[in-house]
């Protein structure tokens, strides 16, 4: 029994590292966008489109890293489009986000039809298995470089929000647009760039899905991870470092189903696969209050206004 428990624990750890990467990238992107005072719900579409373009470009160019870059650029286009539409007067960023989500997924399916069959070169993992002797752990320590890039990015963002001009300007714009205007900062421009950069990160998160884990392109690839990442940003209270922890937690929850299956518990497989969705709901309920406003929320966000 304890063997099975260890197996499940190791599998969940491995899963947490593996599954968390797209969550991490999308939530860091969304964190940046929301810090500037805008919500981009379209990141689900960006994620799927990023996955498709990474796979296609990797297949066509033969280099998965070119695919990652292409996904990022495609993602920034989506972000830029969202940012450009939202700077028009009387436009709701939430409605545009939902439209962009549908557009992104639909467009990805349309362009990606031809890439479901072929096999594209995948991203190679960094093998840290030499650190341990346990064979299960050896497999679990096959970690994708994007995970480390994501970790580094979270630290850089956390430091940058407090110590750089760009970081201060983004926080100022997100917390009080009138102040930003009084300081001569163009609120629309800051939000445009923040949304574009956020789109880039979400696109890269998509590349991870199609080029590493699960590592193929099909239409059911994302299953709402882009949307869950939005909830995750709220859960981590707009703190990039907390985003890492939240992404790992969601990753572990996502790995629960496969982990139980690996020790022979296949009953309720689909139920356990739904764990991240249930976790999303549970966390949102547990951390919300009808009497309190969200702490740490940027003052300009359309959901908290």
């Amino acid at each position: 029994m304890s063997d099975a428990l260890t197996t499940v624990a190791v599998a969940m750890f491995a899963g947490a590292v593996r599954v968390s990467t797209p969550f991490l990238f999308v939530s860091l992107g969304e964190c940046l966008t929301e810090k500037s005072g805008r919500i981009n719900l379209g990141l689900e579409g960006t994620l799927v489109f990023g996955a498709m373009s990474a796979y296609a470009i990797s297949y066509l160019s033969g280099s998965p890293w070119v695919g990652v870059l292409a996904a990022g650029l495609a993602g920034s286009m989506f972000g830029a489009l969202h940012g450009a539409i939202c700077r028009l007067p009387k436009v709701s960023d939430i409605a545009i986000g939902i439209a962009m989500m549908l557009f992104g997924t639909g467009f990805a399916f349309f362009l990606g039809k031809g890439f479901i069959q072929p096999t594209a070169p995948r991203l190679q993992a960094i093998d840290l298995g030499f650190l341990v002797s346990d064979p299960q752990m050896k497999v679990a320590l096959q970690i994708n470089p994007l995970f480390f890039i994501g970790l580094a990015l979270a630290v850089v963002m956390w430091w940058g929000f407090a110590n750089t001009r760009i970081g201060l300007v983004v926080r100022m714009t997100g917390d009080s647009a009138t102040t930003a205007r009084a300081m001569g900062v163009s609120v629309d421009l800051v939000r445009f760039f923040a949304t574009t950069a956020g789109g880039f990160l979400a696109g890269v998160g998509g590349a991870f899905l199609s080029l590493f884990y699960p590592g193929s392109w099909n239409e059911g690839l994302s299953s709402g991870q882009g949307l869950m990442a939005v909830a995750l940003v709220i859960f981590s209270r707009w703190n990039p470092i907390a985003c890492v922890g939240a992404a790992l937690l969601f990753g572990a929850a996502g790995a629960l189903g496969p982990a139980l299956q690996s020790v022979g518990i296949s009953q309720g497989y689909h139920f356990f696969n739904a764990a991240p969705h249930i976790l999303t709901l549970a966390i949102m309920i547990a951390t919300s209050s009808s009497k309190r406003s969200l702490k740490g929320a940027p003052g300009e966000l359309s959901i908290t206004k």
Binding site: R171, M172, D175, S176, T178, T179, A182, G299
Partner: peptide, 11 residues
Amino acid sequence: VYQHFTLVPSL
């Protein structure tokens, strides 16, 4: 100096 402050609350 405006009547409504132009300070960023979270900073």
